[in-house]
């Protein structure tokens, strides 16, 4: 029986928390803030083939995660959509694992098409993949995700300039606008101003998803983004989320960017998230 898409966010958040807790390292905050995005993408939006995984993805929509530190949500959703066994989630960040701290192709984990972790590189890679698709007449789309803090990297704007100027309109880039980064709020660290207007100025079509932690809002928002593609401009989705969403004491703060919950905090957090689809074996 196919699980309902609505069962996934709580279960994915349980996976994230248990993975990070088990090794007392990793990035739960951004992962939980982007859970609805990943669930919508992999269980509704992407036209993709999980198994066997094909690196080239010809005839498939592609996704590149540029802010690689939110690997827990990426791994959970890849596993639960069939790219690899859910049982493998317990190896996260452990020695000899394919689930490295930051995603990589190097260990051969199905579903990962580029290494990310050092920020700001994924948009360029996605632009290249989008151009490759045009070159071979593949009409599928290329999706990316970036943190709002990540936009402080200069390479993002090199890529944004290129994509706008060269009309890379088979590209849909989502910005996780949670207003937080490691050292504090983006307003304190490096105020980002109006992100959407910046992309408009670089020649992009820009839209917003105001409720980035509402699964239906994200699904319909991404469908709207697809409708905007193919019209001569790359599409930027500014998605407003709450970091750490889903657990009361983790939500809305940068403090859980790269911190693992204690035993007590894990128990308290899991009590707020029903085990809808079964936890992976520890």
């Amino acid at each position: 029986m196919t699980p309902s898409i609505h069962d996934l966010p709580a279960q994915v958040r349980r996976d994230i928390l248990r993975m990070v807790h088990a090794v007392q390292s990793g990035h739960p905050g951004g992962s939980m803030g982007c859970t609805e995005f990943f669930v919508a993408l992999y269980f509704d939006i992407l036209r993709h083939q999980a198994s066997p995984f094909n690196m080239d993805g010809t005839g498939e929509d592609l996704f590149f995660l540029s802010n690689g530190h939110i690997s827990p949500v990426f791994y959970s959703v890849l596993a639960r959509s069939g790219y690899f066994s859910i049982d493998e989630l317990h190896t996260f960040r452990k020695l000899n694992s394919r689930l490295q701290g930051h995603p990589t192709t190097h260990e051969g984990l199905p579903g990962v098409r580029i290494a990310s972790g050092s920020l700001g590189q994924g948009l360029s890679v996605a632009v290249g993949a989008a151009q490759a698709k045009k070159l071979v007449g593949d009409d599928r789309l290329v999706f990316t995700l970036h943190g709002d803090g990540e936009l402080q990297e200069g390479q993002i704007w090199e890529a944004a300039l290129y994509a706008g100027a060269k009309k890379v309109d088979n590209l849909i880039s989502t910005i996780d606008a949670n207003g937080q980064q490691i050292d504090g709020s983006t307003d304190d660290v490096m105020p980002m101003g109006d992100i959407g207007s910046k992309f408009v100025a670089f020649g992009w079509e820009v839209m917003h998803i105001q409720e980035g932690n509402n699964l239906e809002a994200v699904r319909s928002g991404l469908r709207q983004a697809i409708a905007l593609s193919g019209k001569g401009k790359p599409v930027c989705v500014v998605m407003h989320t709450s970091m750490g969403f889903g657990v009361d004491f983790m939500a809305g703060t940068h403090k859980w960017h790269g911190i693992a919950p204690s035993d007590e905090q894990l128990a308290s957090a899991l009590a707020q998230l029903p085990e809808t689809l079964g936890d992976y074996p520890a």
Binding site: R113, I114, S124, V127, G128, A132, V136, D138, Y162
Partner: peptide, 10 residues
């Protein structure tokens, strides 16, 4: 360089 990495698709 990043774009070249992505262009290897296919």
């Amino acid at each position: 360089i990043g774009m070249a990495a992505g262009l290897t698709i296919g």
